[in-house]
């Protein structure tokens, strides 16, 4: 149980402000949200979300195993700051957000779990606004365990 003690110790240090680990605050409410609309609100407030054909999502049309669905997201929108992946029908729709810098290309591949057939969305925040694109993926066997 040494690890637990260590974690507890670190938590105590953190609470005392002795460790500078909390550089970035996780978007907790966006990850616990149960509806895509709530994810958008937590991530982007009241900003308008515009559809864009300059966001590209590669994903299988039919995923036989929902536990491992490979996706590739890229965009040629300028000044991309972050890219979020949202899976509408998952219990918690937000899968992840990638925060880019000027040296990271707005393109990544990832494997995600899908409980059932759903739209996979990529939301891109740029210096100019928030843009979205989506792709339907059919799931034969759900992958959220259960």
């Amino acid at each position: 149980m040494h690890r637990r003690a260590l974690v507890k110790g670190l938590a105590t240090l953190l609470s005392l402000g002795l460790l500078p680990l909390n550089l970035y605050a996780r978007a907790v409410a966006a990850f616990t949200a149960e509806q895509a609309a709530d994810v958008y609100r937590e991530l982007f407030g009241s900003a308008a979300i515009l559809p864009s054909d300059r966001i590209h999502i590669k994903a299988p049309e039919i995923a036989e195993n929902g536990a491992v669905v490979p996706i590739t997201v890229s965009t040629d929108l300028a000044n991309t700051q972050s890219i979020s992946v949202v899976i509408d029908e998952n219990p918690n729709p937000l899968s992840g957000t990638f925060y880019l810098t000027e040296d990271s290309a707005p393109e990544f591949s990832l494997r995600v779990k899908m409980g059932r057939s759903s739209t996979i969305r990529a939301l891109v925040r740029t210096a100019d606004g928030v843009y979205m694109s989506g792709r339907q993926v059919k799931v034969t066997i759900g992958g959220c365990g259960g």
């Binding site: 970035y24 996780r26 978007a27 990850f31 536990a67 491992v68 669905v69 899976i87 998952n90 918690n92 937000l94 899968s95 992840g96 957000t97 990638f98 925060y99 990832l110 494997r111 995600v112 779990k113 899908m114 992958g143 959220c144």
Partner: peptide
Amino acid sequence: RAEWGASVS
């Protein structure tokens, strides 16, 4: 930097 949820495989 990336923040992930439990639905990453």
